[in-house]
Amino acid sequence: MSVQAAADKTPAPDKRRGGSERGSGELKEERRRGRMGYWLILPGFLFLLLFFVLPVFSLLATSLYAKPPGADIGQFVPALEFNNYVRMLGSYWPELLRSFGFALIATAAALAIGYPMAYLIAVRLRHHALLRGILLVLIIAPFFTSFILRTQAWKQILADEGPVVSVLRTFALLPDDGRLTATAFAVVCGLTYNFLPFMALPIYANLERLDIRLIEAGNDLYASGFTTFRTVTLPLSMPGVIAGTLLTFIPAAGDYINAALLGNNRDTTMIGQVVDSRFFRVVDYPGASALSFVLMLAILALVFIYVRRFGTKELL
């Protein structure tokens, strides 16, 4: 009897201890995995800290440097010279406005071209894997050659003796002495072309997941093709559209290659060119820094308003 009782008792604490051990083991495992996550983001964190956060602060500091009297070219001392901002904005606000204007037009054009492209590949050709693959590669293909080279090519396309100008002249859409190179039109064309994939790909990625049956449901519920697009497809693809417009607008606003290669020196100068020349030619580091900072803040403000207005929960 007593033996029986003892035998009955012994396994019980054993089990309890075993159970608690397993529990704490699982907990430890879970914590270890949690810490693992932090270790994994560490490299990215350090990289951004070193090459983004610190430079931004350095930029901010530089933008407030002052030039002491009688200093050499490129010699500045740490200061809180807010006048740098006033000076730069006073001189270069037209270039700043123009940059945003060009970027806005280029973004709108890229959206008008990129959305139908993405829609064609993602929705219309959903069951044509081969054709779809080919068209996707064609969108990405330009990345295999240099950005500068491609922009140079646009110079040829839009040249005075080039095909575009001669066609436009034939149809009297351009006066006989009219030209496209070195115009705002050429710059916007270049911007649109160069950032088109950044517009088309996010929209494609979004539309690719669109459930075709939703379009069918729209048609079934008395909505014509266009109404279905307006009420179903477009609202559902807004995250892609927002991502695409941001990825186009932000780099386009700060771009200087297109303006430098396809524009002129009078009425197509963009803010990136100004920063470039302040930095490398005039050697006005604080001025260049101040302009860069203004550009960054302006873009941030515009993006914030835009995402607030049209945005989805996924982005803010």
Binding site: R213, L214, E216, G218, N219, D220
Partner: peptide, 28 residues
């Protein structure tokens, strides 16, 4: 066209519009 026919469908996996409320779905 589908949108001109006096016919409506209850789809296999419902195909409800995810970006609209239930009421907006029904009144679509």
């Amino acid at each position: 066209g589908a949108h001109q026919r006096p016919v409506n469908t209850v789809f296999q996996n419902y195909a409800l519009f995810p970006h609209m409320s239930v009421l907006d779905n029904v009144s679509f």
